[in-house]
């Protein structure tokens, strides 16, 4: 119990100690998580919309691919991205390995299928007749798509929150492609792994609590957004 208590105290003190290293870790964590979730949203939402709201040849295959993508362990994604970005890999000349960009790429591969899959379920629940109704009032396919997303916004935001969660959890991937370089690619999760390995359990738990606080804050923001959407819906 003692170690937990000390860790909590340490976690509270950590941000006030003005450690330059910690600030960089937190900022990198934010940068990677938000960027990967945003790009995952940009890529995953149209795919989810396509799968959930339309019928076409190859849809079954796309659903299977999305579902598989949702289940691939982050370490595997990290490994594949590392091989692609390594000096001898096809994307080697870009020299992205062990950079924040590499971490974002791996994390986008983790978040996109999750956002696509959950968005597809959310939009599939929007009644087809409601779409016909919008079409009958003059909506173009794009305006119809926007309406579908608006109607399914609770589910779509839940998809984004889950995508963010997967990004935060995807430590295996970022460790492999980022390399946990201090001041450059070190994020809270990789720092936690490192501190645990070094036996600095107190610090590791303190960093974990800090990570939890950040994730909590972001999710609180998403929940607020969800609820304000609901309220707007209720007039």
């Amino acid at each position: 119990m003692q170690v937990f208590f000390e860790a909590i105290v340490q976690a509270i003190r950590l941000p006030f100690e003005g450690s330059h290293g910690l600030l960089s870790v937190i900022l990198t964590t934010f940068e990677v998580a938000l960027l990967a979730t945003l790009i995952g949203f940009i890529l995953g939402t149209p795919v989810g919309l396509l799968i959930g709201a339309s019928r076409f040849r190859g849809r079954g295959l796309l659903i299977t691919l999305t579902n598989t993508g949702m289940a691939v362990p982050p370490v595997v994604i990290g490994l594949v991205v590392m091989m692609l970005l390594s000096r001898r890999g096809p994307l080697g000349p870009l020299e992205l390995l062990y950079t924040v960009d590499a971490m974002v790429i791996a994390q986008v591969i983790i978040s996109s299928p999750i956002i696509a899959g959950l968005t597809s379920s959310a939009v599939a629940a929007v009644p087809y007749r409601l779409r016909l109704q919008a079409r009958s009032l003059g909506a173009s396919w794009f305006q119809e798509a926007l309406l579908i997303l608006k109607e399914a916004r609770l589910g779509v935001l839940a998809a984004v929150a889950t995508g963010l969660g997967a990004v935060v959890r995807g430590v295996g991937a970022v460790l492999i492609v980022g390399g946990n370089i201090e001041g450059q690619t070190r994020v809270l999760t990789t720092a936690i792994v490192q501190e645990s390995r070094r036996g600095e359990f107190g610090l590791a738990i303190a960093l974990s609590l800090l990570l939890l606080a950040i994730v909590f804050a972001i999710n609180a923001a998403i929940t607020w957004f969800q609820h304000s959407g609901e309220k707007a819906g209720r007039g």
Partner: peptide, 9 residues
């Protein structure tokens, strides 16, 4: 239509 299908607004 038969169901009013009002939007969430």
């Amino acid at each position: 239509f038969q169901s009013p299908y009002l939007f969430k607004a």
